[in-house]
Design a protein around this nucleic acid. Structure first.
Lengths: 109, 109
DNA sequence: ATCGTTTATCGTAGATTGCCGATTAACTGA
DNA sequence: TCAGTTAATCGGCAATCTACGATAAACGAT
């Protein structure tokens, strides 16, 4: 009992193992997709409008068309949004399944 | 009726205004904090353990100590975690308020 | 006071991001 | 067919991120 630590311990010393976190990569990927203000706005905009044309998104943001296209590409690669060709235009919309995945991953933290 | 668009419209043409999104920056900041697999694991680890020492996190990850320290710094700057000096060690823990903010922002999408 | 432990910071290198203008590709309509 | 519109891609530049080893700072213990 001489070695009893006198300092009050704030840290839990229980040896809990770190679970393998197989979803960490996917989680990070989804988080990365919305880790930029412009992309947050795009996602919110698409949710609010259900679906809309690329050009409209460009008009709403103070960014060049090419830059917005890059952001849309990133969002598309994450699976959060989908682009459907509609004539010369492209109609973007939210992927509800993927959005739900993001929500449950964050909610499960 | 000759000008009736023959193509079925998938896109909603209703003119909905894009709300100013004052939280977009903060949202992106929080998302950025967990936009890396290592940081996702750190956050999950801290949630699972309630609190723990920096060195333990380093042991759990296949990264150098300095790299983990950088990730911890990013997480701390986002407000998601807090570091409390406990002698020569530093005890990290989740900031529940900030975590709840992240959850509600994502849930509110 | 000095040593050992623990963590943060510095400096560096390579890769990636964000932004833009310019160009290209795809499609419609006259 | 040809012109016009729409969106994606290319090339380039500055900035940031990630990772590491090495070093410095803070603290407890002897």
């Amino acid at each position: 009992m001489a070695k009893k630590t006198p300092t009050l311990k704030r840290c839990d010393p229980s040896p809990v193992k770190l679970n393998p976190d197989p979803t960490a990569d996917d989680f990070a990927k989804l988080a990365w997709a919305i880790a930029h203000p412009a992309r947050v706005q795009i996602v919110r905009f698409l949710i609010g409008r259900h679906a809309c044309v690329c050009g409209e998104i460009v008009q709403q943001l103070p960014l060049a068309q090419s830059t917005v296209s890059q952001h849309l590409k990133i969002l598309k690669e994450s699976g959060l949004i989908q682009g459907e060709v509609d004539g010369p235009k492209v109609c973007y919309c939210i992927n509800p399944v993927r959005l739900k995945q993001l929500k449950s991953l964050v909610a499960g933290l």
